[in-house]
Amino acid sequence: MTISRRSLILGIPAAAAMAATATGAAATAARAATATAATATGGATGAASAEVPPFQSPIAIRSRTAVASPHLPRLHLDYPRRVDVTVRYVSRDDSCTTRGEEDVVQADVPAGAAALLLGTTRYDLLQYHFHTPSEHTLDGHRYPVEQHFVHSGPDGETLVLGLFLVPGGRKDVIPDPLPKECGPDLHAKVDLKTALPRDLSTFRYQGSLTTAPFTEPVSWLVLRQPLAVAATGIAGLRRLFPDGDARATQPLNGRVIRYRRQ
């Protein structure tokens, strides 16, 4: 993403965005060099030898300290009412027995089938997946499930829309049945048009992926309003991940969280 576009959608000063991008790239290169060295020597290097990028996700969001930013571009959804998705279990450890925090149930969306727009800029939806419990917290509250809609922008930049899910609704947002670990992919028709709440107010900040290699920068928009969904889906996801599949919250490190009411 160009510095001007990230600054526009997240309200980050251009100089700060440029510095964060450079730092994130350097940290990624350091991790790659560490992995290469470990492979070459036939062993592993200590975790402390690899630089940790400064602006990681998820974070603890506090609404009282978020900066109201009505000037940021509005969020518009171009999600279809019916789309065919491929639902699969993504294992990060190549194991059929260990379920870690980086394993997810993921639904792949056909290219060009759905998108969101910020102002006039289009971000195509690549996939969505689920974490239980929620990875982000809001005002100290951790929700039962968090859904991540992962998008790609004009220059290949990553933008993730986060949505908290709670039981009590009738929407079957979480796949049923769920794919089994090391099992076959499943196919489903889903309604993405009604998969988000009416209130599209978002907390916005610059962060990272929440699974390895924890790449920065990633533009995050976290919806304030949770969505009530069928309790059976949440229960099924919790059975699949009894120990959860959520990364711990990361230090804010001076980042400003902005709030765009909509």
Rank of each mutant, 00 (worst) to 15 (best):
Q106E: 13
Y123A: 13
P167E: 00
Q127E: 06
A107W: 00
F130T: 01
G153A: 12
V160A: 04
P133V: 05
H141M: 09
D176Q: 10
P167C: 01
T158K: 14
A113D: 04
A111P: 02
D108S: 08
L165I: 05
R170T: 12
A111N: 09
G162T: 04
R92N: 07
R99M: 01
L163Y: 07
A113N: 08
D94V: 10
P175T: 02
H151R: 10
E102R: 13
L161I: 06
V150K: 00
T97Q: 13
R122V: 07
D124Q: 13
K171L: 11
Y143I: 08
K171W: 01
S134E: 06
T97S: 15
V104Y: 04
A113T: 09
Y128L: 04
H151Y: 10
S91D: 15
P144D: 10
A111E: 10
P110H: 03
E157G: 07
P144Y: 08
L161K: 05
R142M: 03
G153M: 12
T98V: 14
G140Q: 06
V150I: 12
G112L: 03
E101S: 14
R92M: 02
V145K: 10
A115V: 08
S95N: 14
V104M: 03
S95H: 04
T98F: 00
D176V: 02
Y143D: 07
L125A: 04
L117S: 10
K171V: 02
T97R: 15
S152L: 08
L163S: 03
L138I: 14
G119Q: 05
T158R: 15
R142C: 05
S134Q: 07
H148Y: 13
Y123N: 12
P175N: 05
Y123M: 07
D94C: 09
A113Q: 09
C96P: 02
D176R: 09
Y128K: 01
L117T: 14
E101M: 12
L161M: 11
Y143K: 10
P177K: 03
F149T: 00
T98S: 00
E135N: 05
L116V: 14
